[in-house]
Design a protein around this nucleic acid. Sequence first.
DNA 1: GGCTCACTATATCGATCGGTACAAAACCTC
DNA 2: GAGGTTTTGTACCGATCGATATAGTGAGCC
Lengths: 198, 198
Amino acid sequence: MGRPKEFDVDEALCAALEVFWRHGYEGASLSDLTDAMGITRPSLYATYGNKEELFRKVLDRYEQSHLCFVADALAEPTARRAIERLLKGYADVLTDPMHPPGCLGVNSGVACGEAGSTIRDELVARRSLSERTLRERLDKAAADGELPPEEDPADWARYVMAVGLGMAVKASSGADRAELHRVADLALRALPSTCSAL
Amino acid sequence: MGRPKEFDVDEALCAALEVFWRHGYEGASLSDLTDAMGITRPSLYATYGNKEELFRKVLDRYEQSHLCFVADALAEPTARRAIERLLKGYADVLTDPMHPPGCLGVNSGVACGEAGSTIRDELVARRSLSERTLRERLDKAAADGELPPEEDPADWARYVMAVGLGMAVKASSGADRAELHRVADLALRALPSTCSAL
DNA sequence: GGCTCACTATATCGATCGGTACAAAACCTC
DNA sequence: GAGGTTTTGTACCGATCGATATAGTGAGCC
């Protein structure tokens, strides 16, 4: 019962994603958002809560629709293949002309004012979780003998994450897909030879 | 003639640097700045112009007082030593507990609203200049035979920059000095063996 | 001492920020 | 249709944004 919504909740969320992606969390104003989403301010609050909750919903959608390649990458049989697919897939997302350049999480969470500190913490936590997931994959590689015992999986996970984050900043600055793929190729050269043998 | 200033221009600039470094360009409000600088709003405008000009002055000071190690690093006799000193020195600055974590330029320039777009462009240009300077150092390495002819100095410069930028994001997220040094160590492993021989 | 000049402080500017109160409009059930 | 419920559009809230007008204050010069 009651009056039905005149807009598609998921479609509007997608429009909000575009705005947050381009301008970051604090850089995106409610006017920017409502304009892009094609809805009015009260509709936004009634449907998504407030700006912060909307951003969290956008984040979830972003991860499951643009970062979904991560799970497949980690499922690759070798650590080298996994890391390569991780970095190349990330490079593709960061420079896809269909979307704003760079990474939503990095664009929104590097620095902020007082208002965005909780969002910043949330993004730090999500990145930390990603690194942990990668480390666990590399733990497995170490157990399989793919990573020599003198190598620390945590160090390698941190290194791969750092390269990815750096690619994200470079993408925001205008780097294109080919450039980031070359970055990934050079980054892969650091892997121990026992990794590249497979 | 006239009434003398009651504050030290350079000291106040240093306080402004701290605020911008911590909160980014847009995240730092004029109230944050004047409070930290210990001066009133009209004094700020009379002395530094406006927020944007103040930030540019802060940027210049930042580069010459915290990024001054770059010139020394590039002057190292070998490319490997240069890159190592570049990354290690950068890691030290990013995690120096005397200052806010991360890089002023990265914290301020990844994403922004409408107001900060000219600042963003400026920061992109400065990073581009840094990468160009590094590439020219690697051109020399290639000419010296230190870098094999099949290796592209531009690719290596881009890779090193990406690693540095990634370390900056990780530092903003709480990574410490030792962690970033290990990232740098792994990044250095990618270098061709002809580089590491020296 | 008077004068000039640069700096300081208060108070405020219009614009925009995130967030809502209110009432008209559109749908359902009965 | 009538009543109840939800969404919509408008208009607005207090707070804060960057930026100033204006008046008062303190120093050097004649």
